[in-house]
């Protein structure tokens, strides 16, 4: 068994906008997720987080690059092996309101995957559904209710129960808490952490809530316009970010602590994310970067290890870090 459960090399996912233009949603990304760890994925809206997660799960066909799951290349999987992969790798969606079919009961929603992947008797199936409802903090009373009768937090729990139903080893959590209230966010995050402890799950946790990502992740990857610009331990990303974009992103987090007027003054990132359609050559961040020099506009920096376990894609990162 290798160290990594999921590994992608040179992953690209392009969308053809029209005959002439290509949108590079994920562009030459390397990603490797260890067994039992949570890899956080952050970045501004549209930078490719969801596309990356979905391509890893084979919900999108990669344009190029390789994806390994448990050591096997997934594009080569067929028949039984492919089914097994789909069973092992699950997803929890962003929007608890639209991701569940309102006409199905909760038990039907949870059982859907079980019918495909597990051969259970009706009795075993019911027991398992009740077990799952309890595991996510609901009761068996919910089994026969409809999704539209549930609150956002309850629906998100059903989404998690559905993903857990087939005993996966890997779950992509795509903004699982963004649509929820703060108090419910904390409940869902606690639940994910507990389930990981009990079942040894591996997560890719996508979110734009940076303080939650820091809390739940072992390592964090930062994406900008389809590229991975920094990857390091959660600790290092938040306390000693090295890429200029990560630094700006971290400094933009409004911290929920009040320690006087002085702490309110911060450095700001100007401008907005440019279009991922036919991006210019060179570093994608160059138009907004205050350290940019000639080379940045010409050559795309490679993601390289600058300290043990700390990878950065920047021509000048060794000169600017604080």
């Amino acid at each position: 068994m290798g160290e990594y459960l999921v590994e992608a090399k040179n992953l690209c996912k392009y969308f053809q906008v029209d005959r002439k233009r290509t949108l590079k949603a994920v562009d030459h990304v390397d990603i490797a997720i260890r067994r039992g760890e949570t890899l956080g994925l952050v970045g501004e809206s549209g930078c490719g987080k969801t596309t990356c997660g979905r391509t890893l799960l084979h919900l999108y066909d990669a344009t190029s690059g390789e994806i390994y799951f448990d050591g096997k290349e997934i594009s080569r999987l067929r028949g039984k092996e492919l089914l097994e992969f789909k069973h092992q790798a699950q997803i929890v969606f962003q929007d608890p309101y639209s991701s569940l079919d309102p006409r199905m009961t909760i038990s039907e929603i949870i059982a859907e995957g079980m019918d495909v992947h597990l051969k259970l008797s009706p009795k075993e199936k019911n027991e398992r559904i009740n077990e799952l409802l309890l595991a996510v903090g609901l009761t068996d009373q919910f089994a026969n209710r409809f999704a539209h009768e549930l609150s956002g937090g309850q629906r998100q729990r059903v989404g998690i129960a559905r993903a857990l139903a087939v005993d996966p080893s890997f779950i992509v959590c795509d903004e699982p808490i963004s649509a929820l209230d703060v108090s419910i966010q904390a409940q869902i995050v606690n639940l994910l952490i507990r389930l990981q402890r009990e079942r040894g799950l591996t997560y890719l946790f996508i979110s734009h809530d940076l303080s939650m990502v820091k809390h739940i992740s072992d390592r964090v990857g930062v994406m900008y316009l389809g590229s991975m610009v920094e990857l390091a331990s959660s600790e290092a990303i938040f306390s000693a970010p090295k890429h200029p974009y990560t630094q700006a992103l971290i400094s933009a987090i409004p911290v929920a602590d009040f320690d006087g007027e002085e702490s309110r003054k911060k450095e700001r990132l100007e401008g907005e994310v440019p279009s991922p359609i036919d991006p210019p050559p060179g570093c994608r961040f160059a138009p907004r970067c205050r350290y940019a020099t000639d080379i940045c506009h010409k050559e795309m920096p490679k993601l390289e290890e600058v300290e043990r376990g700390h990878l950065v894609a920047c021509h000048h990162c060794l000169n600017n870090h604080s």
């Binding site: 703060v182 966010q185 303080s211 809390h215 739940i216 959660s234 600790e235 938040f238 987090i253 929920a256």
Partner: peptide, 11 residues
């Protein structure tokens, strides 16, 4: 209920 950036991970 807000995780402070300073808290221990996965607490």
């Amino acid at each position: 209920s807000v995780p402070a950036l300073a808290t221990e991970n996965k607490q």
